[in-house]
């Protein structure tokens, strides 16, 4: 009887939106880390800047395709409704995407920038006036972009959490869960891209930086998910009933085995195993490529599954039909 109003396109969009937020955040952070005023993670910052805008741009495209009338999407920008998370989100998303593209532009090398402009007809003089070097703005753009990247990362959770009719979503922990998952996916995607870029082999300190970042984000995520379940169990009956979806219900295996174990605990274990000797035993960080690849891939897999579980299970949860589940 109950049908899903939001499907896979929304899951993919929520994942890609979060991925961009995480990429921008990690890249922006890398931009700020210097030793003796010299950037030590410039390669990480550049890779992140080059990747960050694309997932959210594709995701926004999917979001528009998912609409009943896709060509009416402009109506989102004719109104501002502060009570609607979707209205706030569509503005946040647009501003963030623009900032991410400007940030990408700031990280282009001179020859890359010239190559792009060489493809634009010479008669388009107004466009060619944009052919300027803004690499000195990198730190400023990153600073302006941070709150927007956090905003995009958290808004996808608020979008679901603000729905009082769905007890599975309607807790104030979902927003943070999505944010930390987004940040963790972003650093994992960045690590994956650095590892796969054969032209500029990744250096050990860069792998270590991204792995450390990811350990922090996964830990934060883990300690939101556990309270989410504990709070839910101690909450009102409707929330408790909604949690049966992942505690014995149809989403139990995908949540515990595929998301929590494979998508969160295994990559966390791999990353801690990699970091442990260099932090506690004073040995050099070796950074096995295969291990890092596996961990990064699993984190992305887990990040996608988290959205999948929440979008689908949340829509099943409700105040008056939950009896049918048992």
């Amino acid at each position: 009887m109950h049908e899903f109003n939001w499907g896979l396109l929304i899951v993919v969009y929520l994942f890609l939106g979060g991925l961009s937020a995480g990429l921008f955040f990690a890249a922006g952070l890398a931009n700020y880390l210097t030793v003796d005023d010299k950037p030590v993670y410039a390669k990480v910052a550049r890779m992140g800047a080059l990747l960050a805008p694309w997932p959210v741009a594709i995701g926004s495209g999917l979001l528009i395709l998912d609409l009943g009338n896709w060509y009416r999407f402009y109506k989102l920008f004719l109104h501002f409704r502060w009570q609607s998370p979707m209205s706030i989100g569509s503005y946040l998303l647009t501003i963030f995407t623009l900032i991410a593209f400007v940030y990408l532009f700031a990280w282009l090398k001179e020859d890359e920038r010239k190559w792009i402009f060489s493809k634009i007809p010479a008669t388009w003089k107004q466009v060619h006036r944009l052919n300027v070097d803004i690499s000195s703005w990198r730190e400023k753009i990153a600073m302006v972009g941070f709150p927007f990247s956090i905003g995009v990362g958290i808004y996808t959770g608020v979008l679901l959490g603000a729905v009082s009719a769905r007890p599975f979503w309607n807790t104030n922990l979902v927003a943070q869960m999505f944010l930390f998952s987004a940040l963790s996916s972003g650093s994992a995607a960045l690590l994956l891209a650095m590892l796969l870029d054969r032209k500029n082999p990744v250096e050990k300190h860069e792998t270590k930086f991204l792995v450390t970042l990811d350990v922090v984000f996964i830990s934060l995520e883990l300690f939101i998910i556990l309270p989410y379940i504990i709070h839910g169990q101690l909450s009102s009956q409707a929330v408790k009933d909604a949690l049966t979806l992942i505690l014995g219900g149809p989403y139990t295996v995908v949540f515990w085995v595929f998301f929590l174990f494979l998508g969160l605990l295994v990559p966390l274990a791999i990353e801690v195993y990699e970091l442990f000797p260099s932090i506690f035993k004073g040995r050099e960080f070796h950074g096995s490529r295969r291990m890092a690849l596996t961990a990064a891939g699993l984190v992305l897999f887990g990040g996608f599954l988290l959205r999948y579980i929440f979008v689908y299970a949340g829509q099943v949860s409700s105040f008056h039909r939950m009896g049918l589940l048992r």
Partner: peptide, 13 residues
């Protein structure tokens, strides 16, 4: 004015 995002359907208890 409806763009067909179906947020209202999800939000209806």
């Amino acid at each position: 004015e409806c763009i067909g995002c179906r947020y209202c359907m999800v939000a209806c208890p």
